[in-house]
């Protein structure tokens, strides 16, 4: 039975949210029922061009999934663009695990629609449905560990490049 408030605050693009979630590695192995539980804790937000999602240094509260639009991740002290993300990308997932401050600023470059998943809601879901919570957290740790492996490989490559440069400098 649809609830009273559900009717008042009805969202229009239900199906597109499911397909959006299925494409995110964190949720790609969840059943329709489990996806429905995740969808029930998402917050839909709309942003105008140049609107800031969050500032570097603000407390990290959760992650965003881009349904449509372009989001730029900017390192504030130098104004360097760290990444430009678009439809289907997600960011800020580390904030789901701990309360560390945001490491960069996120700005909408075009009109954008995003879905936010936030730590208090995720913790609530974990308490209500521990098996689903474990599944999401396990998948999250897999995604983070894959990124860690990639980062380690990049660090290794950079170290090798650095040692080559040092040797070349000694030779000259």
């Amino acid at each position: 039975m649809d609830s009273f408030w559900g009717n008042i605050f009805r969202e229009t693009d239900e199906e597109s949210v499911y397909s959006l979630l299925r494409d995110i590695p964190l949720f790609d192995e969840l059943s329709s029922g489990e996806l429905s539980s995740v969808k029930s804790i998402l917050h839909r937000r709309e942003y105008d061009p140049e609107e800031v999602l969050f500032h570097q240094g603000n407390p990290g509260v959760g992650m965003y999934i881009i349904q449509e639009g372009t989001i730029e991740i900017v390192y504030e002290p130098t104004d360097d663009t760290l990444a430009e993300l678009s439809d289907g990308d997600f960011f800020g997932e580390l904030a789901l695990l701990n309360e560390t401050p945001r490491s960069a600023t996120a700005v909408a470059r075009t009109e954008s629609v995003l879905y936010g998943l936030f730590r208090p809601d995720l913790l609530g879901l974990v308490r209500r449905d521990p098996s689903l919570g474990v599944e999401i957290l396990l998948r999250m740790s897999q995604v983070i560990s894959e990124r860690l492996i990639q980062t380690n490989e990049q660090v290794q490559q950079l170290r090798e490049q650095l040692s080559h440069l040092k040797e070349a400098a000694r030779g000259t």
Partner: peptide
């Protein structure tokens, strides 16, 4: 939007 994360 600007107060969204703070409010949460």
């Amino acid at each position: 939007n600007r107060y969204f994360e703070f409010s949460l």
